[in-house]
């Protein structure tokens, strides 16, 4: 059995096959994975916010898309992944409560997804698949043996990305 490694909120874990990286109960947060199919090295990052420059508490780089993604990249490269082979998948960014006067605070899921995509593109990492938006929670995991990224929901079924 592959080891199940939990990734908390505003947290980042990297590893190598055999291991499954899992993050439970994402709402507006995003779970971004990087994976090198040849060395079977990968990482999973659970970000809460798009942009560290908008924040007053930046001690934890894994909290933000703009600091978390480059950090994950650095760590998987350190483990021996090849930058040119790395591919990304992502899920989350929901809006859990619908308010008619949708403020920016409420749209943070959308902004998280947009920022994550933009940063991956800037780093030249191909996004293979994504499942973002809507209004339900997701538990996400990536199996480092195969690179399969699974999205589990309570009543919207499960998906493999």
């Amino acid at each position: 059995m592959a080891e199940l490694i939990k990734v908390g909120m505003a947290d980042l874990k990297v590893g190598k096959d055999p291991a499954i990286l899992i993050s439970y109960g994402l709402g507006s947060c995003i779970g971004i994975s990087l994976y090198d199919p040849q060395t079977k090295i990968g990482g999973l990052l659970h970000i809460m916010l798009p942009d560290s420059s908008q924040s007053r508490a930046t001690d934890n780089p894994a909290k933000f898309a703009d600091t978390g993604i480059p950090l994950m990249l650095e760590e998987v490269l350190k483990l021996g992944a090849s930058r040119s082979r790395l591919v990304a998948k992502m899920a989350g960014g929901a809006q859990m409560f619908a308010f008619s006067n949708g403020t920016d605070v409420m749209r943070v899921g959308q902004r998280n997804a947009a920022a994550s995509k933009e940063i991956l593109q800037k780093l030249g990492i191909r996004i293979l698949a994504e499942d973002t938006g809507a209004n339900y929670g997701r538990t996400v995991q990536i199996d480092l043996a195969t690179g399969i990224y699974t999205v589990k929901t309570i009543d919207k079924g499960n998906k493999e990305l």
Binding site: M9, G27, M48, S55, R56, M96
Partner: peptide, 26 residues
């Protein structure tokens, strides 16, 4: 405000509140 309701995973629901706090602290 008027209330809003969701039935889902606790982490997903709490994230709404936690994300706002995340701007200011850990």
């Amino acid at each position: 405000s008027i209330p809003a309701l969701a039935m889902d995973m606790a982490g997903a629901i709490l994230s709404v509140v936690l994300i706002q706090l995340g701007q200011m602290g850990d």
